[in-house]
Design a protein around this nucleic acid. Structure first.
Lengths: 147, 147
DNA sequence: CAGTTATTTATAATCATTCTAACATGATAT
DNA sequence: ATATCATGTTAGAATGATTATAAATAACTG
């Protein structure tokens, strides 16, 4: 059901394919991305790396994330009410569900997404590939329980 | 098909209902919102008002937009690749389609939306009300023609 | 190894948004 | 009306995430 999480090696291989150098910093950022089981921000990645790579600059984290995003290995998520950009490791077609209360982001995988986007596409004459991103806002279970 | 654009009077009435004062600045911001046939940013509103209300401060524009958003009369849209927050005047359930190339935002009204949300809701156990917002990224007709 | 290019780093700059404190305005009650 | 008080506005400063800059470093190529 859930598509497998990308492997470190495949990320690094695709960086190399694209003519980017596979530096220790980029390896570390990729490792941190994979270690974070969620939708990390640049700041979270940088903090996570402070222990093992105290010399890593924030600019390098931003640069690496930009490179990965350009290669479509990760996807940027800008969420209303959050001031940091989050990143999604999963680039398979899926929906990101975001809680309007607490900001929690979840991934939803469904095989019918394509068909439904096809209908939206027909109404808008936009070309919608599901890997381009779908964000739905709502209430997460925890927050809706509190009401 | 397309829900009617909100009227100036109804916006102001709802501000008043909520115990907010209907000041000349707030009227002007609402007028500018309605005059902009799209998804304006705070900066665009402020620029548009420079002619008629040269004393209007940017803080007032931001404050008014925040007030309208809290009352759910407009909706904030944070778009990947855009550094300004856009606002959507339409708070009826609909999909915002965003071009990944040029950032153009379109509103799509479709009865398919409910089906999409029902599906996503079942898989995520999030409570999804369609007016909470749905954003789909893709290519607008103009950009896809250029490829 | 030498030369070239990409990458990293620290730091400064940018810039949308928010905060602050003084002032103005509108509502309310005498 | 007038005084009072809460609310709104303003200019300007502060915040803070991200990006730009320029010097130093590391990786590839021949």
């Amino acid at each position: 059901m859930e598509p497998a999480k990308p492997q470190l090696n495949s990320l690094l291989a695709k960086l190399e394919e694209a003519g980017k150098r596979v530096t220790s910093q980029r390896i570390a950022v990729c490792e941190a991305l994979l270690a974070h089981n969620g939708h990390p921000t640049a700041a979270e990645i940088w903090q996570h790396l402070q222990g093992q790579h105290p010399a890593m600059s924030q600019a390098t984290v931003y640069n690496t994330l930009s490179a990965l995003e350009e290669l479509q290995l990760i996807r940027a998520l800008d969420i209303v009410g959050e001031n940091h950009t989050h990143y999604d490791l999963c680039v398979h077609p899926h929906v990101n569900v975001v809680c309007t209360r607490c900001g929690t982001i979840a991934d939803v995988h469904t095989d019918t997404l394509e068909a439904l986007l096809g209908l939206v596409s027909a109404r808008s004459s936009y070309q919608l590939a599901p890997q381009d991103g779908v964000i739905v806002y709502g209430l997460c279970p925890a927050c809706s329980a509190k009401l």
